[in-house]
Design a protein around this nucleic acid. Structure first.
Lengths: 217, 217
DNA sequence: TTCACTATTTGATATAGGTCAAAGGAAAGC
DNA sequence: GCTTTCCTTTGACCTATATCAAATAGTGAA
């Protein structure tokens, strides 16, 4: 994405850390400012519509069948969305790390019951906004609408990448894809969550990590 | 999606046909008007920036490694995006039917070489717009930006649905998913294109269609 | 109608990765 | 420090779907 570069640079500057370091910190204002050239007044008004939330590890933000009432920005921490298969197994749908928006998208935008659970996998700092406030900002600022469009498009290309990885690659290749999409995740979340994200069992992922017998790249 | 209902209704009205009929026709103006409440002046200006293109069956719109310079609206016809695996096999990535926008999204929005081919699978009527003109419209009309956001979000949820289907369902279930996502496609395009879209071989799809021995729903 | 070509179906066999079962490890509560 | 619980690894076996090969059915051109 065109602002991908910026993002890494900001994370770097904010932290004085290597961008691949385990934990990052990404402020909402810096994030917004670097995608769309908001004025200071706009930025102040926009961020005033978000609410800071501290949530602890393993806390669930949204349950299946609830309407997801908020969009979250992850300032610090990691979360995931997941759903339960008929047999009760959890399937991770996506991970959300520092500097990303997190929600049960369809539920939030259509105000329908969520198919997914949202939970944080670490103690985290989030900024949340309600649907009404977001709509208000979309209506008030052309730039905000643009932000929404750019973020949607970015997410779209990420999901398409995952789709291609999941659909046509071997288990090993999918794991490699994941290491580039979420470099920090592999050391931060349980293996089972990663395995289901990649569409394989934890046994298979464990064998891949061992790096043993497989002949696939 | 919130405008999903409208879409079907319009298609219905335009055609006086059952919405599941084989071929639909969807005018750009009607499409736009029913997603966002554009004024007539806006609509006139916007549609004036599109160019009508008649393309014939099997015509390629964009090749791999070309920058995709246009976004297409499909008024009539079906297209697909696909890429070539290392072994030269075509893999269908998406189908685009009447009333949908079609492009190599990442290439078009980032002006990078396309990973995909775009081709029409039937004689088709398209409306195309260049990146410059689209940006101009995004900048000129807040409503246009909103349209972009809504369409991106819609596409995002569609891709997520496919991802879930492809990742965790049996071949038979994936085929059923496809019948709901693209009801008309199964009779309009070659079996091989559908099979690769669903991440299976054409032999498997053929066996599924026969509806034989499989014990999966 | 026939030819040439392409798309689809069918059959036989192979394999990546799943399932089931159990054993180690690590970490959280007491 | 000990205990309980959860997380990860390992092994043995199985199944859905791929692969390879060939037969059959459609389709358009002349």
């Amino acid at each position: 994405m065109m602002y991908q570069g910026y993002l890494e640079k900001i994370a770097f500057n904010c932290l004085h850390l290597n961008p691949k370091a385990e934990k990052l910190y990404m402020s909402l204002q810096d994030f917004l400012r670097n995608i769309v050239p908001f004025t200071s007044e706009e930025l102040t008004d926009i961020t005033a519509h978000f609410e800071r939330e501290i949530v602890s590890k393993n806390q669930t933000l949204v349950k299946e069948n609830q309407v997801c009432t908020k969009l979250f920005f992850v300032e610090k921490g990691v979360g995931r969305s997941y759903y339960l298969k008929e047999d009760g197994k959890e399937v991770t749908q996506w991970f959300f790390i520092e500097g990303k928006f997190m929600s049960s998208i369809e539920s939030f935008f259509q105000q329908t019951p969520s198919l997914y659970y949202l939970e944080m996998l670490e103690d985290s700092v989030l900024y949340s906004i309600t649907r009404e406030n977001l709509d208000l900002l979309f209506a008030r600022y052309h730039n905000m609408e643009k932000l929404g469009r750019l973020l949607s498009t970015e997410m779209l290309t990420r999901v398409v990448n995952k789709l291609n990885a999941v659909q046509f690659q071997t288990a090993k290749q999918r794991y490699d894809y994941m290491l580039t999409e979420f470099p920090s995740i592999s050391s931060r979340v349980p293996l089972g969550s990663i395995a289901s994200y990649l569409g394989m069992t934890q046994e298979t992922l464990s064998r891949i990590r061992r790096g043993g017998t497989s002949r696939n790249s």
